[in-house]
């Protein structure tokens, strides 16, 4: 399997009033394509910051990050934006849909920034929504949908550009257990179809559905755990 992500001695500092906060203190690991990985840790452990760096939303203070062998330090902000558009799909805890925009248009949003005209956008979005079981909700507004449905719209949006990797930040955090289970099943299905997925969570039950858990504590990886039959 191809190595997608390879990081070494990654640190991230934030300037605060009266000092510097060391959020990440030398993190190293790699993720291959096709993996279903959980990054688990308590709040404040630095797991979200780690995910932002891995997803090109933020830059490390030091250390190296190779994405498909390419050092992202050399890339400009615009190049990172294009990389996010092409390679990354994000799913967030609070769904992050545009409220006044239809479900269909929300799913199509990343297509606005691919850099060329997409002619089959509607078809692709409809297919994606069909895959998450929402083909009957195309023209609804997000606030007319349940939490579980909204999160499935977000997953359809994350998949529209057929990315190399999906980052899901506490994807079940705002959902009841039934909807949460549905969403987790969706991730597992996607994994079986060959998608690479990184779950960021503080919830051990969620994390244990992955094949591998990276335990984060105080800005460091304290354990790289393989789960058999996860």
């Amino acid at each position: 399997m191809e190595t997608l992500i390879s990081i070494k001695d990654l640190t991230k500092d934030y300037e605060l009033e009266g000092g510097v906060a060391n959020i990440l203190r030398g993190v190293s690991f790699s993720i291959s394509s096709g993996e279903l990985v959980a990054i688990m840790g308590p709040s404040g452990s630095g797991k979200s910051t780690l995910m932002h760096i891995l997803g090109f939303l933020d830059r490390p203070t030091s250390g190296t990050y190779l994405f498909r062998g390419r050092d992202i330090k050399t890339l400009s902000d615009d190049e990172l934006a294009r990389l996010r558009n092409k390679e990354i799909g994000f799913v967030f805890q609070s769904f992050n849909l545009l409220k006044r925009t239809s479900v269909l248009d929300n799913v199509k949003l990343p297509l606005s920034y691919v850099g060329y005209k997409v002619t089959d956008g509607d078809e692709r979005a409809k297919k994606g929504l069909d895959a998450v079981g929402l083909s009957h909700r195309l023209h609804n507004r997000p606030n007319q949908l349940s939490g579980g449905e909204q999160q499935r719209v977000a997953i359809a949006r994350a998949l529209i550009n057929n990315p190399s990797i999906i980052f899901a930040d506490e994807p079940t955090g705002n959902l009841d257990s039934k909807s949460g289970a549905q969403v987790m099943q969706l991730f597992k299905d996607l994994h079986h179809q060959g998608h690479t997925i990184v779950l960021v969570t503080h919830d051990a039950t969620v994390a244990h559905q992955a094949h591998r858990i990276l335990h984060v504590m105080d800005g460091q990886i304290v354990q790289d755990e393989k789960i058999s039959g996860g």
Partner: peptide
């Protein structure tokens, strides 16, 4: 602001 953040997350560049 939130919308702008989201657009950037899904790939909008500064000039977009």
């Amino acid at each position: 602001t939130y919308e702008i953040g989201l657009r950037k997350a899904v790939g909008a560049t500064q000039s977009n």
